[in-house]
């Protein structure tokens, strides 16, 4: 098993782990963290897969993508945290109201 492949596998694992946490945790901060873990997983896959077959030189495109991705993730996290704080201020707890009407 090559090193890049291992990294990619770990990345996928992080993605799955984050998804699991996103679903089972009610607290919004945990959900946001879970999404960040998922994001890191995806970035790791991207970085790892930049090493393509054989001895070809490293591909720079996925790295560029990861940088863009990180920027997007930071802004998304900022928005999520602000929303969570606002919701907390309005409703007194940082959890989603269970939608029983559904």
């Amino acid at each position: 098993m090559s090193t890049p492949f291992l990294y990619a596998l770990v990345g996928t694992g992080l993605f799955a782990l984050g998804l699991f946490a996103l679903i089972i945790h009610a607290h919004l901060l945990r959900k946001i963290l879970a999404l960040n873990v998922m994001g890191s997983g995806v970035f790791m896959v991207l970085v790892a897969l930049a090493k393509r077959t054989g001895d070809a030189p490293l591909d720079a495109v996925p790295h560029a993508m990861v940088i863009t991705g990180i920027v997007v993730a930071v802004s998304a996290t900022a928005l999520a945290l602000t929303l969570m704080l606002k919701l907390n201020a309005k409703s007194g707890h940082a959890e989603l109201p269970d939608d029983r009407r559904e």
Binding site: L22, L35, K90, S91, L96
Partner: peptide, 13 residues
């Protein structure tokens, strides 16, 4: 706000 939060989580996922 609740709806926006739910929407955001779904969108990010």
């Amino acid at each position: 706000l609740g709806a926006a939060m739910r929407y955001l989580l779904a969108a990010l996922l």
